[in-house]
Design a protein around this nucleic acid. Structure first.
Lengths: 233, 233
DNA sequence: GTCACGTTTCACACGCGGTTAACACAACAC
DNA sequence: GTGTTGTGTTAACCGCGTGTGAAACGTGAC
């Protein structure tokens, strides 16, 4: 399940970065009309809203807030992005929003406020994930699933798979894998990589074992082989 | 009736101005000790607290927040004043404060946040209850039950379990747990975490001991292992 | 076919890392 | 004072993850 946060009227620069850092997906409503918002809404509703009142007529932004609040399915939390001169306009409108940020917008601050409000609203912020060809890895829970089935991976197996999955289709030599995943310089045990690849393939199961491919005389590559990829090596 | 807001450890410059603009009276606690705070408290309690974590040891500020929250008469809202570099330290501490301001402090912004939180106070309820996989924790009465059976937890046990249970499925390193639950900054005794986990598991009982899982070479995770975590689609 | 070279697979031993118990010490009650 | 309870430290124990060597297997060259 992915948290979708409404973003009006645009989502670029530091705002987009903040969304990425927080791990939530923005749904951008450029006009800020309610019907546009409704059209964007996922089945389980928005996890919140970020409204940039700096790049938007202020009264319209406030109207949108009111509409989002008074709907049959209220959107919460609502975070406003403001210019400094707009601060006074917030007086007596405190109930229309839950937090605000004053420009120029700093990525860390926006992300922190987003996370703060989401967690206080009871939402679990979505963790950073890696997904590819039926494999899903949650980097915060240290869990991996293949085709929905939970894989019971050891530490090194997880680290190796994570490295490969975050760099799909690229071929890595055993030496590269040793230095990047294990962290030390090649001591002479290149077989170590082979063995871990073998164990990973076993745990991936017969159907998905080929997600890790052997490139003879070179090394290993991760990726669904059916899907073409404009890779160079 | 005059609203008195606790102010730690000082109240000068833009902060004092913000208080003046908002029309609330500051009660300055220079040390930030709880007994000093209690001595300053008016008969009808504080209307809120502003804690300058920029001019104050951060962990002490966090401890004060926790104490103010867990008192028989909790102080709310709590607003933190921070340096930009302290933003990351707020992660997983979202329940300890209600708002924050990043320095250099602007009078209008501080005043607006103060006003905002004071007006919203009462409308906002921090989730006073955590439930997960047979475990229920009442954050107000400091009681925990597992499968309906009351658990007799000590302070540290309770704090650790609360932290884990409010962040289910996420893996935490011992260092993270030490800094977030204990508040330490030193990494000398990581075994401390192990021992407390062991004691918690013992009190959870054999059937529920596995609610806290060991992630080898990484740390610990809370959550019912049989139920899939809420990330699969 | 044979041979050479690279990869897969297996079995096994070492040691890291977690568990566990016992102890030390401080805080507090009586 | 003594006893109790909570908390952190130390060290012994041990399971299992991990790396290694060697044998089995596959592949391409000739």
């Amino acid at each position: 399940m992915i948290d979708v946060v409404l973003c009006v009227p645009s989502c670029d620069g530091p705002i987009r970065k903040a969304f990425e850092v927080t791990g939530v997906t923005p749904a951008v409503a450029t006009t800020g009309r309610l019907n546009e918002v409704v059209a964007l809404e996922p089945a389980d509703g928005f996890a919140g809203a970020v409204i940039n009142a700096a790049g938007f007529p202020f009264t319209e932004a406030m109207n949108l807030c009111r509409q989002l609040r008074h709907r049959d399915r209220p959107v919460s939390p609502i975070i406003l992005l403001l210019d400094h001169y707009q601060l006074d306009d917030l007086t007596f409108r405190e109930d229309l929003f839950d937090d605000f940020v004053v420009g120029p917008f700093d990525v860390s601050e926006v992300a922190t406020r987003l996370r703060h409000r989401l967690r206080r609203a009871g939402n679990e912020t979505v963790a950073a994930r890696v997904e590819h060809g039926g494999l899903a890895m949650n980097l915060e829970t240290y869990q991996a699933t293949i085709a929905g089935r939970v894989m019971d991976l050891t530490y090194m197996e997880y680290e190796l798979l994570r490295f490969l999955a975050t760099n799909p289709y690229r071929v890595f030599t055993r030496e590269t894998l040793l230095s990047r995943v294990w962290g030390y310089e090649y001591y002479g045990g290149a077989r170590t990589v082979d063995v871990h690849v073998r164990r990973l393939r076993a745990k991936l199961g017969e159907e998905y074992a080929h997600l890790i491919q052997t490139v003879r005389s070179v090394g290993y590559r991760f990726g669904a082989p059916t899907e073409g990829e404009p890779d160079e090596d």
